[in-house]
Design a binder for these strands. Structure first.
Lengths: 202, 202, 202, 202
DNA sequence: AATGAATGAGATTTCATTCAT
DNA sequence: AATGAATGAAATCTCATTCAT
């Protein structure tokens, strides 16, 4: 069994290497721009091996996108923080996570392939975008339950918050190959949160 | 001169036909997915002719994108309309224009080509997105000058409005190959406007 | 008739312009490298006109080569010059004529097209090379008749002279895109002539 | 290692086949006239394979030319041969080698590409022409050292010999698509050698 | 006669994918 | 399982030549 296990681990390493190389190339050059041969070379693997692990370029692409789809950590917030500060921190975290995952580039390639891979796009949208709304909406609902926020449609509220922030920071990045977190985003976030609390705070 | 004019008109027709066919194919299949030969065939023209009119596929692509870049009409508003109604109408028009131009698909392909054609992306962003902010900000500034709205940073305000609306209607469309204007958008728009006026109305 | 003549002269001008432009492009880029469109543009004429004057690229090529085929002037030599000086002058003139006509480049393109245009090559060889041997052989024969040179096969003698000179100056130029007459060629020519006279002088 | 060796041998065979087919087509049709697809077909290989082995048509062309560039064997001469016979044999060998290598056609295509590939032309000239002068000059220098020939500039002497021979046999072949060794060349060679020995023999 | 525009037929090159071992 | 080499199919672009006026 030792041999078999060894083999499996080698194989798994290659699998991971291909995935990683694929991610790099797809993010850098887009779907059509990334060449299977380059990905294989980067992963230090033959093209034939690449195709043993993923039966087509598209399948690798899908795997790359799905793989990026990790859970997002929502950090615990200090009890004594103000509501405003907490919300700013949450939204800031949202933005940081986005840039840390290089999500802009990822979304870019998924968007590019909407006509060619609609299912992937829908899935990605759900897992990457909708589920993040949901997490924030859950928080909002809790705050409403606690009486800290006025009752309102939490999904609507979240889209108000997130929409403004995306409009400021993510939408421009989508067109600008930016990969770094914008500076001073917190100021704008705070302004957005302040308006939100004027509307829905108690 | 009849000859010259005739030739010019024939040539211009072909030029336009190529542009139109290019638009169709690029929107449908993306930049790399669209084949010059197919575009030429669609335009009922030889590939050579296509290349006489546009010296490369990229140049045709840029022309297609720039061509979509028409001025947006802001319709006049009835004098007796309420502020809320007026703003809803303006934003609704924003959305209608977006879908009528098939701007989602257009933005999609531009986004896809950000790594390959960064200048085009920047230009498109400026003309398609920033300049539309500006038009709305101008309106807001006028309303502030009239005392109809409280003084505030009009660009921030516009991003709040537009951000929410995009979040609801444009961002999902980006991932969903939707080409039709969503129904009942006006309800959400009105809700957004109401919140906005609670914040900045007088 | 005035009108007709005018037209004819215009047409002849265009013909000449095309020929000249053709010569330039063929010499610079070779047969396949020269584009009909470029030649036409250089001649300030439409491609269609070019094809009215020469029914194919090849025909133009042939015309260009034939056109270069002018008579060579053999300058008169002073009576009191020594035999050696006279022969050096004749051979030097041979070389000068060669470079002035840009014959290296011309021969180059003819040589290149030997498989494709064997007749042209044969004709060019005869008019450009053999006929020049003949002229020199005639001179040699006269000198033999005068008793200034020993009786010998004048064609063999000429090939000895010309062969040495070509070996030094023309053969290298064939491979080097050289267009200018080499300097100090006269020294080598004199040395060749001296050897020749040691063999065949009286 | 059996696998590796097998693969290498297959690959090397294809490499050689492409080279050979390339040589054939380039010699027959010149550089631009030869189509990569035809060469591949002739070599019984896909175009893609051709491009795996040579990354461009030009690279294949250069390889073909360089490949022709084998060392020339100078055969040993019988000790009891006369100087004249030896020299005739050497020069005859020079000519035979030239025609056996089909060097005329090779030089033709290199000459054709002088404007497009000047480096190749220079290299070819050096290895194909200059280095052959050198070999002959070395022989001449030895003969001078032995006292068999009078002291003189061996390079000049070699150009006299070679020049005359090229003038008779190679220059005409350049224009005539001749691929076969001329007959009775030995007679002319002997005549040239005789003159040479009258000048430089002891 | 002249021309601006058009084109059919190819040219080179690339790439996702498979084969033989 | 892994691979080096091979490939069919297609893509972009060019060019000599012709057409419509």
């Amino acid at each position: 069994m030792g041999l078999e296990e060894y083999r499996r681990s080698v194989s798994e390493n290659k699998h991971a290497a291909i995935l990683k190389a694929g991610r790099k190339h797809f993010l850098e050059h887009g779907y059509s721009g990334a060449a299977a041969a380059d990905i294989a070379r980067e992963a230090d693997v033959s093209t034939a091996t690449l195709y043993k692990h993923f039966s087509s370029k598209e399948e690798l692409f899908v795997a790359v996108v799905k793989d990026a789809d990790h859970e997002e950590e929502i950090p615990p917030f200090p009890d004594n923080a103000s509501l405003e500060d907490t919300m700013v921190a949450v939204l800031n975290n949202y933005l940081i996570t986005h840039f840390e995952k290089n999500a802009t580039a990822l979304l870019r390639i998924v968007i590019a392939e909407v006509p060619g891979a609609p299912d992937l796009a829908r899935d990605t949208f759900n897992e990457f975008i909708v589920s993040r709304y949901q997490k924030l909406a859950d928080i909002v609902d809790q705050l409403i339950a606690h009486g800290t926020l006025k009752p309102h449609d939490s999904h609507f509220g979240v889209r108000l918050l997130i929409g403004a922030i995306k409009e400021h920071y993510i939408w421009p990045a989508l067109f600008d190959n930016k990969t770094t977190m914008p500076e001073h985003a917190e100021d704008v976030i705070r302004q957005v949160v302040k308006d939100y609390l004027r509307l829905y705070g108690t």
